[in-house]
């Protein structure tokens, strides 16, 4: 077998795979959040889009874990077919896990007329179901479509980072069962925790959704394509909600 190392061949090799630019170009970096002085927890998530295979295990596990009614979703992995003009292949798949960003400046909270929704000390944004009047003002105010009115409870509902599991020393359902290992959950304030390490390692490519709104999301992304950072300009899905409630 001839020595394949010949530079000419190497060139052809580069052009074969590596030639393809990743569609994530440089864009507004997410301010890597600082460590809090006090040793308190600050829960956050890193979504490594490169690892997502769009299997929706997260979506379904969330539904089962949190009894999310038919037709509503606390998380979903939006999947897109993207035409490529700058690559050797005509199109590519883009998978984007979405959930509540547990923003540090959450527009959903100040609007609540009864103070039913708030950010816990540990950074988790929650709804107090005993107080919520179901006015859906917060649903309107969330820029990420992360909230909805739960038709079983008639209250505002959203991702809680599975606070009930986290408080019990466990991982959120969607993280626990993430097949690609794309969802990394942890404590921003734990300097040598896995989350911190990954955030630091990826700091140059860290992004968040809709950074321009100043909501300061605490869900960070690696491999987030600018074209998907805000409202996606494209052909909408054919998905139609199924009659789930009367």
């Amino acid at each position: 077998m001839k020595d394949p190392g010949s530079s000419a061949a190497c060139a052809s090799r580069r052009s074969f795979l590596r030639g393809i630019p990743v569609i994530t170009a440089a864009a507004a970096l997410a301010p890597a959040p600082a460590l809090a002085a006090d040793g308190k927890h600050h829960w956050a998530m890193l979504v490594d889009a490169r690892k997502c295979i769009g299997c929706q295990a997260c979506t379904v596990s969330c539904i089962q874990e949190n009894a999310v009614p038919e037709g509503s979703f606390r998380t979903i992995v939006s999947t897109y077919s993207v035409k490529l003009t700058d690559a050797d292949q005509p199109a590519g798949t883009y998978q984007l896990p979405r959930l509540c960003n547990h923003c540090d400046q959450p527009p959903c909270i100040p609007v609540c007329p009864v103070g039913a929704t708030f950010k816990r000390e540990d950074g988790i944004v929650v709804v107090d179901g005993d107080r919520c009047v179901g006015c859906a003002y917060c649903v309107q105010a969330c820029p990420y479509d992360a909230r909805f009115i739960n038709h079983a409870t008639n209250k505002a509902d959203k991702c809680t980072f599975c606070a009930h599991r986290v408080d019990a020393g466990l991982l959120p359902a969607c993280v626990e069962t993430c097949v690609g290992g794309a969802r990394i959950f942890g404590d921003l304030n734990d300097p040598d925790g896995e989350l911190r390490r990954r955030l630091t390692a990826a700091k140059d490519e860290l992004k968040v959704l809709k950074p321009e709104l100043g909501t300061e999301p605490r869900v960070f992304y690696v491999g987030l394509d600018p074209r998907f950072q805000g409202k996606v300009e494209g052909q909408g899905t054919l998905w139609q909600p199924r009659k789930a409630h009367g």
């Binding site: 979703f73 992995v77 077919s81 993207v82 035409k83 996606v232 300009e233 909408g236 998905w239």
Partner: peptide, 12 residues
Amino acid sequence: MNPDIVETVNVA
């Protein structure tokens, strides 16, 4: 609308 991006899985 940009026909170069087509949503294949998402929910309303």
